[in-house]
Design a protein around this nucleic acid. Sequence first.
DNA 1: AATTTCGGTGTACGCCCGTTCACTGACTAG
DNA 2: CTAGTCAGTGAACGGGCGTACACCGAAATT
Lengths: 245, 245
Amino acid sequence: MSIRAVCELGYVSDSVSRVHGRTLAAVTEHASATVGRAERTGGRAERKERTRQKLLDATLQMVTTRSLASVSLREVARDAGIVPTAFYRHFDSMDALGVELVDECMRPLRQMTRDARRGTSNRGDIIAGTVAILGRQVREHPAQFQFLTRERYGGVSAVRRAIAMELRLFTSELTVDLARLTAGGDWSSEDLEMAADLMVAAMLNTVLRLLEVDHRHREDEQRILSTSERQLRLIALGMAAWRSG
Amino acid sequence: MSIRAVCELGYVSDSVSRVHGRTLAAVTEHASATVGRAERTGGRAERKERTRQKLLDATLQMVTTRSLASVSLREVARDAGIVPTAFYRHFDSMDALGVELVDECMRPLRQMTRDARRGTSNRGDIIAGTVAILGRQVREHPAQFQFLTRERYGGVSAVRRAIAMELRLFTSELTVDLARLTAGGDWSSEDLEMAADLMVAAMLNTVLRLLEVDHRHREDEQRILSTSERQLRLIALGMAAWRSG
DNA sequence: AATTTCGGTGTACGCCCGTTCACTGACTAG
DNA sequence: CTAGTCAGTGAACGGGCGTACACCGAAATT
């Protein structure tokens, strides 16, 4: 007897659908039980952290195909294998979860900045190195970048604000780097920010392009990265010819 | 007696909430009755078109603050002053409405292209002219641009595709224009596309910036447009120094 | 060993949703 | 004048949602 049939008989209650959900969750858990029976180990704090992470992961997974605003608290809880009300032991609301998810997804981006800066100290081509790092980060953390780009102008204002803040930080760091690189040239800080903003826009555009191609086609990926590199090079050429003020 | 109270007495039915909604709609309609009593005029086809437009307008209004995926059919119908089921006389679903809304919102952008091209024939500064036109279009049609930028990577895939297609068209038109401007220089079509893509990215970035400031502060708006102009100029400088292939 | 803490459970509620169906009555075509 | 079309109505349905509340039992604290 299907759940549907049960419902049509008017024998419906919240419990029925929840049991259905739990069944699915249990199956999923079983299928992805790579860690085996290591579920019930660790102290209370550790296990709470694990559940919390499951909630974040489940949400991130869903947001790769839909917008955060359309993901429900119940759905996330179901996927994480807990009852809806237990959600509140970890987050005040889906909005709050979203904001924390921004922080988590920013880590790849921050890592990228660090990597790129280290590459700068080497003797290689700064632009080529940066683009390569960008490509690698997007390939390795597609869901995170998907989330950030989708929700950057998405429906949840708290998340929008959080992303905007982090992105402003990113731009200002790049501004500092540009200041070092153009030392000696007569660049006003306003113009440096303008250039950094343009570069960030170009790179975000690249991220979007990378995300919308099937990443198994390495040739498409390479074409996009090549375009990105030439765009940054074009900007660099422009900067070399720039007279500030 | 409040609706809330009615519901708590268990005296709830669909009708109650619908009547509530209609009351709100009626009030709204009354408040914004700038056209007065000209409601019941025109033939059947004409009135259908009017309702259709009301549905599109209501949706566009809502999407300025939330994502399309979170706007419900009932809500839109309520705002347009019709019963939910009548919605289907005009659109198959909210997704279908979204796709048509893309087309409607693209008109300002297409107008922009035309205006900019006309400006080109004049003797003035092409970049300054283009940026000015961009600023004017965004100021005059904020909701349309809001919708396009928000849903460009939003949750509804049909809408995403529609926007992506239109934007690709826009870029390819710009590529043609660039080809004319760089005639004589040794530019490959691939590099032209690369440059056009960068310019479109820069301009979209400008649109986003314009939308997120309070448009009553003309000084902020001017600062953003000035930055945009300098960014395009930086790119133009880069192009002047570019050696293709 | 006794007590407290707290992550997770189970039930129930009121609400809004999309969609179905039979209908109504003003416009329109013959 | 009449028959038909069709935008809009109104009631009902099954279902998902957020969240309040009382409860449980294992881990942590005393």
